[in-house]
Amino acid sequence: MPEVDPLSTDWSDDEVAVMHHLHDWAAAFDELNRGLSSWMRLPVSDANALGEIVWAEQSGTPISPAGLARRIGMTTGATSVLLDRLEAAGHVVRLRESTDRRRVTLRPTDAARAENERFLAFAGAEIASTVRSAAPDELRAASAFLARMTAAAASANARLAARPRSDGGA
C-alpha cells in the first residue's frame, strides 16, 4: 500500500464522510459501553474489561490478564486490581485451563454472562436489525474495509508504542 501523508492529501467527500462515520460509530459504541457500565452498576473501566472478557470467550479465545491489560490500555498491576474487584463482585473467574498451569484465562461467571445478555437484548436490537438487514455483499465489503482499517490502526499503534518519547521519559 502506498504511503499517504494524511495532512497534505486532498480527501474526497466520500473519504471524509467515511472517517466521520467511523468516528461517530466509535463514539456511539463508547456510549454503549458506558450504558453497560450503568446497567451492571460498575465503573466504566470494570464494565469495559468485563465486556472484553465476554467478547473473548464468545469468540472462542479466552483472554489472559496480560492480554486484557493490553486490550484496555491499563498496566498489568492496575488490571490485576480491577480483576480483583470483578472477581469479588462475582463477575469473573480466573482459571488455569491449559496444560501450562501458569497460564491464567479469564471467564465471565454465569451471572455476569446472563446480565450481559439481558443488556444486549435491551440495547442491541437496533444494531442487530441493521446487521441482519444488510445485503451479503454489503456485509462482505464492510467487513473487508473494517479489517483493513483495524490493521492500519494496529500498525500505527505499534509504531507509537515503539517510538521513544520526545520528552526523554521512559
Rank of each mutant, 00 (worst) to 15 (best):
E52P: 00
E52S: 07
S59W: 13
S59C: 04
S59K: 11
T61W: 14
P62E: 12
P62A: 13
P62K: 15
I63Q: 07
P65V: 08
P65M: 06
L68R: 03
L68G: 03
A69T: 05
A69G: 01
A69W: 11
I72D: 04
M74G: 00
M74F: 11
M74K: 13
T75F: 00
G77H: 06
A78T: 10
T79C: 03
S80H: 07
V81M: 04
V81A: 04
L83S: 00
D84E: 09
R85A: 02
A88W: 11
A88E: 14
A88R: 15
G90N: 09
H91V: 00
V92D: 00
V92Y: 07
R94G: 11
L95H: 05
L95S: 07
L95A: 12
R96Y: 08
S98R: 13
T99A: 14
T99Y: 06
R103L: 13
R103S: 07
L106Y: 12
R107H: 15
R107A: 14
P108A: 09
P108K: 11
T109Y: 14
D110Q: 12
D110A: 12
D110H: 14
A111C: 01
R113L: 09
R113I: 02
E115G: 04
F119V: 06
L120A: 13
L120T: 03
